[in-house]
């Protein structure tokens, strides 16, 4: 896919896929997000309207985007229940976007179909931010993950990062692995064999010469790691419930597992968690997942301000 490599200006740019961003672009977004975290900018987007189109429910992502806009002084119009409105009446996505863009300056959308955000961006004159398109991309999640990793480690290059749990269906780990590899991180893919990284992700990683290895158990690597990125393993993903029961315990983070970790070691999780992280871990210095979720606010503020050409 062609990448707009030298494009420095973010004004009017769409945020659809992490593949569209160069290393320099990503660093720039993280830098801007840092300034938003350090200091509020309550009037920056005054008079700007965000249309929030969630064709599939996602309270967290929607709240985070809408709050980001409000905190910058902008306002939000939203489809209360997109499912029951236009799309179920058979209106095409392109038509919906053509109508909505007249009422707003920027669009965030989540949609169950893959490639929907790319299509919306091609139709819309306003910038479109992808809030998740099916199993494909969720770029603002990737940016907030990277932001949190950089915040805790002060760098991205050369880090030892374990991606753990359901790597097959876990969309967030796909884009994150790609972005981290761009920065030269060393990746450990730790998952039950049936839930390992899919071929299409590995193909992309090969292309950018990622450094990685596959494992089934996290324990031997704990002393090496800087970041442990946990994801949820869903029982439904296993054809045989017995298989699930066999692996269930292996990927649960307990205090015991953390005995030999480095001082700078941090645990991240895209949330919601079920039982991958024991509650006893929450008040250790290694738990960073709630701060990580909070960082979504600053990253989304940064992206909104950037595509509106205000920073």
């Amino acid at each position: 896919m062609p990448r707009k490599s030298t494009l420095r200006s973010f004004k009017n740019r769409d945020v659809i896929s992490v593949r569209d961003f160069s290393k320099g672009d990503i660093q720039h977004v993280l830098k801007v997000a840092k300034t938003f975290k350090a200091r509020p900018h309550p009037d920056l987007l005054k008079g700007t309207i965000l249309a929030s189109l969630f064709f599939e429910p996602s309270t967290r992502t929607r709240f985070s985007f809408e709050s980001a806009m409000e905190r910058l002084g902008g306002s939000v119009i939203s489809l209360a229940d997109a499912k029951s409105s236009s799309s179920s009446k058979g209106e095409s996505l392109s038509d919906s976007i053509r109508i909505v863009e007249k009422y707003c300056d920027v669009i965030v959308m989540r949609h169950p179909l893959e490639g929907s955000a790319r299509l919306a961006a091609e139709v819309s004159k306003n910038p479109v931010l992808n809030g998740g398109d099916g199993a494909n991309q969720h770029p603002t999640q990737t940016f907030l993950d990277l932001f949190s990793i950089h915040e805790t480690q002060k760098k991205l290059a050369g880090l030892h990062v374990a991606l753990v749990g359901d790597l097959k269906y876990g969309r967030t780990t796909h884009s994150l692995a790609y972005a981290l590899a761009l920065f030269g991180a060393r990746l450990y893919f730790i998952a039950p064999q049936s839930l390992q990284m899919p071929d299409h992700v590995m193909r992309d990683l090969e292309k950018i010469k990622a450094k990685y290895s596959f494992h089934t158990h996290p324990e031997p690597f704990m002393p090496k790691l800087d970041i442990f990125y946990a994801t949820r393993i869903q029982k439904e993903r296993f054809p045989d419930p017995l298989e699930y029961e066999k692996v269930e315990g292996i990927y649960v983070i307990t205090k015991k597992l953390l005995k030999k970790v480095k001082k700078n070691f941090r645990i991240l999780h895209p949330l919601p968690r079920v039982n991958e992280i024991n509650y006893e871990v929450d008040n250790t210095p290694y738990a960073y997942y709630f701060e990580q979720a909070n960082n979504g606010l600053y990253v989304r503020q940064a992206l909104l301000a950037l595509v509106m050409g205000k920073v």
């Binding site: 095409s92 392109s94 179909l113 893959e114 490639g115 929907s116 299509l119």
Partner: peptide, 14 residues
């Protein structure tokens, strides 16, 4: 699950 199989979008491949 590709949008091109559901909406009025011309397919495009690299």
């Amino acid at each position: 699950s590709c949008i091109t199989n559901h909406d009025h979008a011309r397919t495009k491949f690299y």
